[in-house]
Computed example of a mutant assay.
Amino acid sequence: MRKTFEPRPADPVIIFDNVQKTFNLRHARSLKQTVLAAVRRRDRFEAFNALDHVTFAVAPGESVAVLGRNGSGKSTTLKLLSGVLRPTSGNIYTMGRVAGLLEVGAGFHPDLTGRENVYLNAAILGMTKAETEARFDDIVAFSEIGNFIDTEVKRYSSGMHARLGFSVAVHAEHDILLVDEVLSVGDAEFREKCHAKMRELQAAGNTMFIVSHSAEQVRKLCQRGIVLDRGVMVFDGPIDDAIAAMQQKRR
C-alpha cells in the first residue's frame, strides 16, 4: 500500500516499511510447453522477488542514490515510489508532491507535438494548466528543443525525448524528485546544465531519489547511497561508502 501523510517537522518524507515486490515469471511460452506443464501438473510460473523486505526512511531535503547492478531492484524502487507499481506487501509513505522521469519519453504520446506533450506530461505530474503556462517558456528553453516544439514527438531522437521530459519534471511543482538514468543523455554541456539544475533544486530543499550507474554523477549530487543486490538492501550510508560497497559487489 502506498500512502501520503501530513508530516510533523521531524518526520521523514519517504518511508519504505518492509516492502516486498514479487513478480510471477512465466516458464512455459509455447502452446506445447503449456500443455505439457498442465499434463505434468507443473507450475508455469515462478515467483521472483524484485524487492525483498526493504526498509528505509528519507529525511526532507536529502539526496539519495539507489545503486546496484542491473536487475538489483533500483528501477522497481522508483516505480513503487511514483505509484506506477504497488507493493506486494509492506507499506510506502510519501509526503508532498512526487514527480519524476523514470524512462526516456515516459508519459509522451508519439502522435502529439512537443507542445501538447508538455501539457500532457505536466498534468500527469500534477500541475494545473495555469502552472504549466507560467513555466512553459522556461521548460522549452531548458530543453533546447527550439522550433521542434511543434513537431510530433515520434520524430524526436531519444535525446530530444529525454531533454524535454527532464525539463518538464524539474520545472514541475514537487517536493520529491525521482530520476532514473536520464542524466546520461545529451552532450557534456547539457549534462552539466542538468547537474546545475539539480543542485538548484537541492538548495531549494527538494528531496531527490536518483538511479545512476555513474559514480561521478552520484558523488556530485548525493550525500547518501542505498545499495541493492538481487532485491535485498545490502548497504545504506554515506555516498562514498555506498559506491565502495557497490563496487565490491561487482567483483
Rank of each mutant, 00 (worst) to 15 (best):
Arg44Asp: 12
Gly96Met: 08
Thr34Trp: 14
Thr34Ile: 15
Arg155Gln: 11
Gly231Ser: 09
Ala215Trp: 07
Arg135Thr: 02
Asn91Asp: 14
Ala57Phe: 04
Arg251Cys: 01
Arg224Gln: 12
Thr77Glu: 01
Tyr156Lys: 04
Lys79Pro: 00
Asn24Ser: 14
Thr94Phe: 02
Arg191Tyr: 05
Arg135Cys: 03
Asn206Phe: 00
Gly90Pro: 01
Pro87Ser: 09
Val118Gly: 05
Thr207Met: 07
Glu189Arg: 13
Arg40Pro: 00
Gly100Pro: 01
Gly186Ser: 07
Leu102Asn: 02
Thr151Val: 13
Pro87Phe: 10
Ala28Asn: 14
Val118Glu: 07
Phe108Thr: 06
Met208Ser: 09
Gly146Tyr: 11
Ala242Pro: 01
Asn206His: 15
Gly114Pro: 02
Glu116Met: 06
Glu62Pro: 00
Val182Gly: 02
Leu125Pro: 01
Leu81His: 04
Phe16Val: 09
Met233Thr: 01
Leu85Glu: 12
Ser143Ile: 08
Ser75Tyr: 03
Thr94Cys: 12
Asp11His: 09
Val35Asn: 10
Gly68Thr: 06
Lys193Ser: 05
Pro9Gly: 11
Thr77Pro: 00
Ala162Thr: 08
Thr22Gln: 13
Glu46Tyr: 05
Val84Ile: 15
Ile14Glu: 05
Asp137Phe: 04
Arg230Pro: 00
Glu173Met: 04
Glu46Arg: 14
Arg115Ile: 01
Val84Tyr: 10
Ile139Tyr: 06
Glu152Arg: 15
Gly205Tyr: 08
Val232Thr: 14
Asp43Tyr: 06
Ile14Asn: 04
Glu103Gly: 06
Glu189Met: 06
His195Ser: 03
Ala172Arg: 06
Pro238Ala: 13
Pro110His: 12
Gly114Asn: 06
Thr76Cys: 02
Ser212Thr: 12
Met198His: 02
Ala141Leu: 06
Asp52Ser: 13
Gly225Thr: 10
Phe5Tyr: 15
Ser72Pro: 00
Thr94Trp: 03
Leu80Glu: 02
Val19Asp: 09
Lys154Ala: 01
Glu216Lys: 09
Ile92Glu: 04
Thr34Met: 15
Gln217Arg: 04
Ile149Asn: 02
